[in-house]
Computed example of a mutant assay.
Amino acid sequence: MDKKINIYKDVEALSEGFTSLLKEELSKREIVNVSLSGGSTPKALFNYWVANCKESIDWNRIAFFWGDERCVRPTDEMSNFGMTKSLLFDKIPTIDKKKIHRIHGENESKEEVQWYTSIMDKYLPKENGLPVFDIMMLGMGDDGHTVSIFPHQIDLWNAEADCVTAQHPETGMERISLTGRLVNNSRNIVFLVTGKNKAEKVKQIIEEREKFADIYPAAKVNPVNGKLFWMLDEGAASLL
């Protein structure tokens, strides 16, 4: 596996590092297809882009997708799309609205899973017979989950589908999630992880991935042909 571990002094430096990767991909291809994640680190990244990159990134050449979404309306504060819209899309007018492909969390989940599968099939190039993202942005929960595949449903990672319905282990809230075969088919997979509370899982997954691959979904991230980047702040990297 082609794995790179980058440690940054703070979330702003991490945002700069991710932006460099995005610009590199933009230099290679006409349209860059990015799968976004929710969470606090992407929030900081979106704020960084609005403050520093309105002009320096060719926004109309980026197509936006999501790795997962909560089954809520886009106006709900839990919505990954809603968060991205308010922090990023509403503030950068050069983003092409036609290239924003959101998961409709408000729709009936089984129908939406099929619809989003068809959207990825329509708009993404194919490699290994599957849709391929140029950049797959991932977060990691304290419990080792990634996208919306949690340890109690780890078998969903290996589902034959590109997209599945999952449940949060405590609240039971439904979520729509991409599966492992799409995550691992991406050209660049980037874990954005910040905070000391994640340090133990980061250490376990980076240093002993195979040992934890049946316990934490994040340990199942293993690109087929692409590169894997860990972009960590000093807290998340403190046990490495």
Rank of each mutant, 00 (worst) to 15 (best):
M1K: 12
M1V: 11
E12V: 14
E12K: 15
E16N: 15
K28T: 09
G38H: 01
T41Y: 00
F46P: 07
F46R: 08
Y48H: 10
V50D: 05
A51D: 11
I57N: 01
F65Q: 03
R70H: 01
C71E: 05
C71Q: 05
R73E: 15
T75Y: 14
D76E: 02
E77P: 13
E77L: 12
M78A: 15
S79V: 05
N80K: 05
T84D: 12
L88A: 13
F89E: 10
F89A: 05
K91I: 01
K91H: 13
I95Q: 10
K97Q: 15
I100D: 10
H104R: 14
N107D: 14
N107Y: 12
E108P: 03
K110W: 11
E111Y: 13
E112S: 02
V113Q: 06
Q114H: 13
Y123K: 13
Y123Q: 13
L124S: 07
L124M: 05
P131K: 13
F133D: 09
I135Y: 04
M137R: 05
G141L: 12
D142W: 08
D142N: 14
I149K: 09
I154D: 04
D155P: 02
L156P: 07
A159W: 07
M173A: 14
E174S: 09
R175P: 10
I176Y: 09
S177V: 11
L178R: 05
N184F: 08
I189N: 07
T194C: 09
G195M: 10
G195Q: 02
K201F: 07
K203A: 12
E208A: 14
R209M: 00
P217N: 01
K220W: 02
N222W: 01
N225V: 04
D233R: 08
G235W: 09
G235R: 07
G235N: 08
A237T: 08
S238C: 15
